[in-house]
């Protein structure tokens, strides 16, 4: 579904990714965990074409999308829920969801809306409220729901747990699992919260300083001593 080969990228002269190889198969949930500043967000942004990759390839469903403009990449069955949620604060929840469907066929808007509101009943209750007045968890739901409105084949999630209470994090991760299980959406998830992410994911990668240092199934990585010591703080949760 998504294959990343030897990807290098960065901002100006600062290189953030030093040759990253990752593959995500159709129907999988793959988690990329790592510390702050490891380059996780940069990787997602580079997949989306901003910043452009300086070397390596991104292949989406057999098509090389490296170097395409962001808005062209986003029309190829890929959706991105960006870091920090980035919902439209002065627009209503419904308008936010409409924006998510901006590039989709308007014929199935009603159907997609129903599907997303089914996943996030909280959004249905707040449909005409301004996005900025939602709680953090609701905003995250809105960000994911908005991304789903374009009927993506693969969903890129950037830190969905950021700044949320543990209970809300669990809720959101359950919904991500449901999106994957029930609707067959492939998920590539980037997280600092390694415990939840690896528990959810089929497979995982660990990123340190712009390089992938470890990979394996979610269970394998969770059991790994080094990961427990570095990212799980002795295994809480």
């Amino acid at each position: 579904m998504l294959r990343i080969e030897g990807l290098q990228s960065g901002y100006g002269r600062i290189q953030a990714l030093h040759g990253v190889d990752i593959s995500v198969a159709e129907g999988e949930i793959v988690a990329l965990v790592g510390a702050n500043g490891a380059g996780k967000t940069t990787l997602l942004m580079t997949i989306c074409g901003n910043p452009r990759a300086s070397a390596g390839r991104v292949v989406l469903a057999g098509e090389d999308i490296t170097g395409l403009a962001t808005h062209h990449i986003m029309r190829r069955g890929l959706a991105h829920s960006p870091e920090g949620r980035r919902i439209f604060p002065r627009m209503s929840v419904l308008e936010n969801l409409q924006m998510g469907a901006a590039m989709a066929d308007p014929a199935h808007f009603a159907q997609d809306l129903e599907r997303v509101l089914g996943l996030f009943p909280r959004l249905a209750e707040r449909l005409h409220q301004r996005g900025g007045t939602l709680s953090g968890g609701e905003q995250q739901m809105l960000a994911i729901g908005r991304a789903l409105m374009s009927r993506p084949k693969i969903l890129l999630l950037d830190e969905p747990s950021l700044g949320l209470a543990p209970l809300v994090v669990r809720q959101i991760f359950e919904i991500v699992a449901e999106i994957n299980r029930e609707q067959g959406v492939t998920v590539f998830l980037v997280e600092q919260n390694a415990f939840h992410a690896l528990k959810l994911a089929h497979r995982g990668y660990v990123m340190v300083n712009g390089k992938v240092t470890m990979s394996g199934t979610g269970a394998e990585l969770l059991a790994n001593e080094e990961i427990r010591a570095h990212y799980l703080g002795g295994g809480h949760g």
């Binding site: 960006p82 604060p89 924006m99 901006a102 590039m103 374009s150």
Partner: peptide, 24 residues
Amino acid sequence: LPVGRAWEALREDEIACRSLGINP
């Protein structure tokens, strides 16, 4: 209409617009 909504969305957050496939 979608054009007008895109204008407003752009005012709110350009990066989010890009990630929704809108050409700023």
